[in-house]
Simulated assay, not measured.
Amino acid sequence: MREAAFVKQNEKKWEALSQAITSGKSTLKPDELADYFIQLTDDLGYAKTHYPQSNTTAYLNNLTASVHQAIYRNKKEDRNRFIHFWKKELPEVLYASRAQILYSFVIFVMACLIGAVSAAHDDTFVRLILGDSYVNMTLQNIANADPMAVYKSMGRGDMFFAITVNNIKVSFMAFAAGILLSVGTGFVLLQNGIMLGAFQYFFYQKGVLLPSFLTIWIHGTIEIASIIIAGAAGLVMGNSILFPATYPRMESFKKGAKKGMKIVIGLVPLFIIAGFLESFVTRLTHWPWPLRLAIILLSAFFVIYYFVIYPAKLQQHANPKN
């Protein structure tokens, strides 16, 4: 990008920031200053790379120093940092990553369909995906009129630990695989989606789809949502390498990795909740179906509201004209 175009694209932001701190008493909140500082250092890095001897680089260097001083002059310990992360910081990242969330969801759903169709047309596919031991055990449980007995075969505490660690492992894998230019994340989503599609079709084929749905999706709603959103975090990181826009590729990667990591950190409570539900609630197959359905619907509402609707509302509130 030519220097003139770079300046024109960013000068309003620089001028607004300069005016905000000129008086020596910033009108911006510390968190807002920090966000501007990150953007400014990215701009400075780009300018140093492409226009090292220009007046623009010198100007940005001075402005960055001024903002740095303003941040530390006004720095206060934020006692509500934890609340702020969940209430504002994470939703803002989620809104900015809404396209990646959609892509991740579409990839996963398509993979589920591939798994189901493959299982329908190939009698050996389910065994290939789920393994002979699991299929044989489930067939025996169905014959014993308790198709979901697998969720009762392990102690609650041990199961909670194992399931939570596994959920974290799968989600971090979906995120970390994004470094392979998003292809790795796509593969993880395909793998898990195909497994789920084959898994559910297997129960449909054996005539126990409804009991399996009312059991598995008690924890599966949050668990699958976590995998999809972790996949979106991986796509955010991968796309930052593929499409750096005006930033140097390394700077773009750092920004994408930071955004993706925030999303994955935001999923930690979901890992714990899903692990708790699978270990302590899913096994309660004697509970009436309306209660189990209510848990599934409540989980789905929470996921859709917090990860999709709330970020959009927050953005709309911040920019009412948009």
Rank of each mutant, 00 (worst) to 15 (best):
V67Q: 02
V183H: 10
F307I: 02
I101C: 05
F175R: 00
I107P: 01
P248C: 13
Y95H: 06
G197V: 09
A145P: 13
G193E: 03
S153V: 11
I129D: 10
G238M: 06
L293W: 07
V208R: 08
V7H: 11
Q205M: 15
S171T: 03
N55T: 12
Y36A: 00
A162S: 09
N192K: 01
G24Q: 07
K262L: 08
I295L: 11
E15D: 12
A174N: 00
K313G: 04
A120Y: 15
T124N: 14
A232T: 00
A198M: 14
Y134L: 07
S252Y: 10
Q205N: 13
S133A: 06
T246Q: 14
I163C: 03
R249N: 15
F243S: 15
V264T: 04
A312G: 01
L44D: 01
E32C: 02
N80I: 03
I129Y: 13
I222F: 04
K29V: 05
T164N: 04
L181N: 12
I107H: 01
I263K: 01
S66C: 03
L33H: 00
P91L: 10
N144G: 11
I227S: 02
K88V: 09
I194K: 06
H121F: 12
I218F: 07
D35A: 05
Y46H: 15
A174W: 00
P91N: 05
T64M: 00
A119I: 14
F213P: 10
F203A: 09
I265W: 07
L102Q: 14
K29Y: 07
V106C: 12
F160E: 12
S226M: 03
A20D: 03
Y310N: 03
M237P: 15
I228Y: 00
R98Q: 10
L196M: 07
L209R: 07
P269M: 11
S279H: 09
L180S: 11
P30N: 02
L235P: 06
F85Y: 00
G115C: 12
P288Q: 02
H50N: 14
R156A: 14
Q69P: 01
H219N: 08
D122W: 15
W86A: 12
I38K: 03
F280H: 13
F202V: 09
I229G: 02
G260E: 04
I272N: 10
A119H: 13
T282Y: 08
L297F: 15
V303Q: 06
T215W: 08
T124R: 15
